[in-house]
Design a protein around this nucleic acid. Sequence first.
DNA 1: TTGATGTTTCGAGCTGGATCGAAACATTGT
DNA 2: ACAATGTTTCGATCCAGCTCGAAACATCAA
Lengths: 230, 230
Amino acid sequence: MREGPDIALIGSLLGEPTRANMLMALMNGKALTAGELAREAGVTPQTASSHLAKLEAGGLLRPLKQGRHRYFALADTEVADMLESLTGLAAQKGHMRLRTGPKDPALRHARLCYNHLAGTCGVQMLESMASRGFLELDHEAVALTGKGSLFLQDLGLDVDKLKSANKVLCKTCVDWSVRRYHLGGALGRALWSHIDTFGWARRDGDTRIVMFTKQGQKNFEACFPSVSSV
Amino acid sequence: MREGPDIALIGSLLGEPTRANMLMALMNGKALTAGELAREAGVTPQTASSHLAKLEAGGLLRPLKQGRHRYFALADTEVADMLESLTGLAAQKGHMRLRTGPKDPALRHARLCYNHLAGTCGVQMLESMASRGFLELDHEAVALTGKGSLFLQDLGLDVDKLKSANKVLCKTCVDWSVRRYHLGGALGRALWSHIDTFGWARRDGDTRIVMFTKQGQKNFEACFPSVSSV
DNA sequence: TTGATGTTTCGAGCTGGATCGAAACATTGT
DNA sequence: ACAATGTTTCGATCCAGCTCGAAACATCAA
């Protein structure tokens, strides 16, 4: 009651639906302007401004002034991780915003978790690599094997560079839609970047939803074949 | 804005200082009665009752009726993990409840993180084991080595049983006091249980603070020698 | 049964904070 | 210079929800 960090402050920031909506809108990794966030959350620009100021003061957002716009992004990956883990807990406890809407299936299929792939596709990617011995998976611990390094190099990724950067390479991330794990960390980022730059898929507007092209889905399946089809 | 789990609900539960205090009080792993929680949070029993009902409805608490008392505990380890990770983020962002009070040093030295050891001692335990090759540590991934299994068996732990239970064996947990990791998971639990049953340390009243006995601290140092002293 | 203790329900009061209109401020383009 | 657009500040309104007193309910110990 008297010592330690104050979680209530961050909690109250997350507890306001308008602010929660803004934060979730930023989970696709793109920075948005104050106005866009206002529209996203369904409030007037004035109201949004006050909320954004609070989120910034609380250290959850990083503002970026650009001309007459002010862009906001999540402050760092820690914040994104916290949001995703809270999302997971909320899903586990059955706290849903609405009954599964029309967009829900698409969201379950493939979406961005800040900067890496989540949803059924994300889970499939992790499990496919694990089943072929490219990743060593033990509950929620995951590591890249030598065989995996070769596989990624064939794909055209600069594995050495990924390893040398002192960020976490592999990391599991609880997927709230499926109740399993997908791949985060530097490798998760790199793989999404691969999918993006090769045009296998693209973001659906400004949402977190990821839409695969017909050919892209084919390529993805060839690269990360579904385990269950074994 | 329209789809996905609702983090605002959980956020609002955490955002109320009274409720946050109650949750933090439960982080020592013990179940507390409604009255104790009321005192802990500094509100009347009526107020506490209403908060506890909300926390229970939100799935964060698990009630346990016993005679005319009602005990409350955190619902599951997921909740505890979420709280500790939020605590970490709050610490990182510099959100402290008060300026470092008198109990703070003790809390930094050794405390319970739900059911395993945290604080300087917890960090030391992890790093000591890692430096001697008992644990393989890669950023935030951690795994028990064969050598480590032997070490634990010498200590008297039933490693096979720990492994066979399908809970996560090893897991890093960000320590907010020191900015490093300590050991969670089934092994973290087992090690605290060891320290507890052998009387090396005991909880300070109902707080999360862990007080080592003089002899206990000695035994601990012998078992998990500080890495920096190498 | 009676009294003591722990917990919850009900009702009423109060306040922090979300909201928006109006207006000021900032930046860009013409 | 002026107008157009994006953002913030100020002020006023309004409401969800925190709070506690009073009283009911539950359990235990005589």
